[in-house]
């Protein structure tokens, strides 16, 4: 009950802040909120990816690599075929393949999961660096689609209902994954496998299969995040362009207590830090060297992780390979 009321207090303060800012400068408020959402999308997708794995007991530290390789191949697909949706499909597929590799290492080989994820990250950096081409471009990225009527609402309309397609898809996915995790047999099985795999196994649940499938779904989400970066947010590929988002996403996941909807709210907080970074730089409103503004999201991540001592509880079997008896 206490936590519930505290959430309302936080929500109230945020709302008040937005309204005051809107009163002071409607244009800037709208811009900052729009950038916040755009920055939050890859983070919440990454967090959903991490959450799918960890709810069933596998830590995925390779989200960064999954995103990076997917971003690259999604982009190159559009360079070759000029088809944005084919690019998205390839990005998702790349994520799935990387998810399969992680599952093979972590579930079948029972490798240390941190090392397994690190392998994915280093592999992605190597492959994208080797095959990277200077001077290739795509004709255009995804453009915003205004939803009739809703997009006319002041402030909320342009921020929420006038976005490119992958943003809408992500918002829908947050709800879908929440539903799958908490209202379907598969979700129940996943959580059982993440909390007590032995008991789940006794009840006839195939622990390995659940972990494999969830890591593949997670990979697809990270792949979508990669495609979002190149095909919707930036419109080009640069080396190391994920810039730590895969790791920040893990902090988002923890902050959201392994739940999709709180994770989405947490991603907005981090998105806001990233939005401040770009907006403050663009407008040069304050005279702080940009490097210090760039540090914000990373320092925020550390503070969030450090401030959550004892307040979060990961799934009980998180990070432990399952050995069948």
């Amino acid at each position: 009950m206490r936590r519930f009321s505290r959430s309302w207090v936080v929500a109230g303060v945020v709302l008040l802040g937005v309204l005051v800012a809107y009163g002071l400068s409607p244009q800037m408020t709208q811009a900052v909120l729009a950038v916040t959402l755009r920055q939050a999308i890859p983070l919440v997708l990454g967090a959903l990816c991490g959450l799918m794995g960890e709810r069933s007991g596998v830590i995925n530290i390779g989200i960064e690599g999954q995103m990076l390789l997917a971003a690259f191949l999604a982009f190159m697909t559009v360079v070759w075929t000029d088809n944005l949706w084919l690019g998205v499909a390839v990005g998702v597929l790349v994520g799935v393949v990387m998810g399969l590799m992680l599952a093979f290492m972590a579930v079948t080989l029972k490798m240390d999961q941190i090392i397994a994820g690190t392998v994915l990250n280093i592999l992605a950096i190597g492959l994208t660096g080797y095959y990277y081409q200077i001077g290739v471009s795509i004709k255009g990225k995804f453009t915003p689609i205004a939803i009739p009527v809703l997009s006319k609402i002041p402030l909320l309309g342009p921020v929420l209902f006038e976005n490119p397609p992958l943003t809408y898809i992500t918002l829908i996915l947050v709800v879908v994954i929440h539903f799958v995790l908490f209202y379907t047999p598969w979700g129940l099985r996943s959580r059982a496998v993440g909390e007590h795999p032995r008991a789940a196994d006794t009840l006839g649940i195939n622990v390995f299969l659940v972990r494999y499938v969830n890591l593949l779904i997670g990979g697809a989400l990270a792949g979508l995040a990669g495609a979002f970066l190149t095909l919707e947010a930036v419109g080009t590929f640069e080396r190391l362009m994920t810039n730590g988002r895969g790791f920040v996403a893990l902090a988002v996941m923890i902050f959201g207590r392994w739940n999709p909807i709180p994770a989405f709210l947490a991603s907005l907080l981090f998105g806001f830090a990233l939005a401040l970074q770009t907006q403050l730089q663009a407008m040069a409103v304050v005279n702080i060297p940009h490097q210090f503004i760039s540090m914000l999201p990373y320092i925020l991540t550390i503070l969030v992780l450090a401030g959550l001592r004892g307040r979060t509880r990961p799934p009980a079997a998180d990070g432990i390979p399952y050995e069948k008896e």
């Binding site: 530290i61 941190i114 730590g244 790791f247 920040v248 893990l250 902090a251 490097q291 210090f292 760039s294 540090m295 990373y298 320092i299 991540t301 550390i302 992780l305 450090a306 401030g307 959550l308 001592r309 004892g310």
Partner: peptide, 20 residues
Amino acid sequence: YTGAHEVITTIMLNYVAVNL
């Protein structure tokens, strides 16, 4: 003292060091 996992905090501090 806070239980923050070193894998994430060290990566975040890498970005801090590079920016600094």
